[in-house]
Nucleic acid binder design. Structure first.
Lengths: 212, 212
DNA sequence: GGAGTGGCTGTACGCGTGTATAGCCTGTTG
DNA sequence: CAACAGGCTATACACGCGTACAGCCACTCC
């Protein structure tokens, strides 16, 4: 039988790979609630085959976690090599990378242990980066790093609501650029002036001492 | 029969109110996956009674949404009245307020329409605030506002991972204060210096023009 | 050329879910 | 005191889920 090549490379993949890819896509946006039968349908195979190749739903989940987090870790090393302040961040607009973000963010919500480990690793890396390049950013660099990582993974989780308000999908170029510009503004122009920040800090200190 | 008063006020509430409170608590941290039977168990009633009072699981969900979002909206107006830069933000450490945050953040993930409407409202309010008090914060104030709202709701969603990295629950005072300090640092000390920010912006402009 | 192997399908089973309903128990009303 | 009403429970049912298993089909190897 002639295999029509319609430009979709999904047809070329092993059934096992198609199942994995379909699962990653579905896990990324519906999370753990995704059904084995849904995955099978998306991959164009029977539900039995999913189990045949991966053993169980949990095992499939773990395989997807490993696959995606592997990719994420090598992306991370790429970024580390390039340097942080580098405008190369724009390459993050690549579809596969965006899928990776979505998957990891969703996995964090669903309580995936490997994703949590990656979160922690990112916090460590961020802390180390601050210690080396911007130790004055905060008196509590680990907390600052943790907050930033949480906010950015959270930002990905909220992409649907962000897109609705921007009028553009942040996983497509136009929306991604608009979001990036806003982030640059956020990180380059302080929202709190010095007196306001000082007042806020002293309020916290007061409460803190009251507790002691 | 004598009703022992053990200090827990849950005992005093109507069964209907206990069901609602238990549902809010469970929805807030497990989301839509929460079971009617789990809610019933937490409220100390039978599963049938949940349906008796609320009709269906979806109706219960809507009732909880309405209840919590009502509370959230009045909190919002309180904040608006107090003013934003006000250190009164510390009052946000109140348990009920934190539960409200958690519930709303989780509802956003689970696709609740009322929660999405509130998200949009917050973006509008943020934009208006910037227009009035800090119009230089960005050339694209709606995008900046949307990004900030998304990051902060996302931050709440990631509270578990944040807590693990801080070594303190951010829904208890100590962790909340530590997180708040980090946020103040983030918003008062620019992470990107001017040349870096300018370089990043021009990279985006270049890509943007290439697309046009 | 027959046996074996592995990718793959279809059907079936047990379980937990949301939902429905019949009935109990207590307090109120005529 | 009898009838009623409503908060509440227990049981039952249909459905979709993850899982298990028996078997088909194409291909390879002796």
């Amino acid at each position: 039988m002639v295999q029509p090549r319609v430009g979709r490379d999904l047809e070329d993949l092993t059934a096992r790979a198609r199942i994995r890819d379909a699962a990653i896509e579905l896990f990324a946006d519906r999370g753990a609630a995704t059904t084995i039968r849904d995955i099978a349908r998306a991959a164009g195979v029977s539900a039995g085959l999913v189990r045949h190749h991966f053993g169980s739903k949990d095992a499939l989940r773990e395989a997807c976690d490993a696959f995606v987090l592997d990719r994420a870790m090598s992306m991370k090393e790429q970024v580390m090599a390039d340097g942080f302040g580098n405008p190369a961040f724009l390459s993050a607009a690549h579809p596969t990378i965006l899928l990776t973000y979505r998957y990891v963010a969703r996995a964090l919500i669903d309580g995936s242990a490997p994703a949590a480990a990656m979160f922690d690793e990112l916090v460590r890396l961020g802390t180390a980066w601050f210690e080396r390049h911007d130790p004055e950013a905060s008196e509590d660099l680990p907390a600052l790093s943790a907050v930033i990582v949480a906010m950015h993974t959270g930002l990905v989780v909220m992409h649907e609501h962000l897109a609705r308000n921007l009028g553009a999908d942040v996983f497509e170029l136009a929306g991604y650029l608009r979001m990036s510009r806003a982030l640059i503004d956020l990180y380059s122009r302080p929202l709190l002036d010095d007196p306001t920040a000082a007042a806020a800090r002293s309020s916290i200190d007061k409460v803190s001492e009251g507790e002691r």
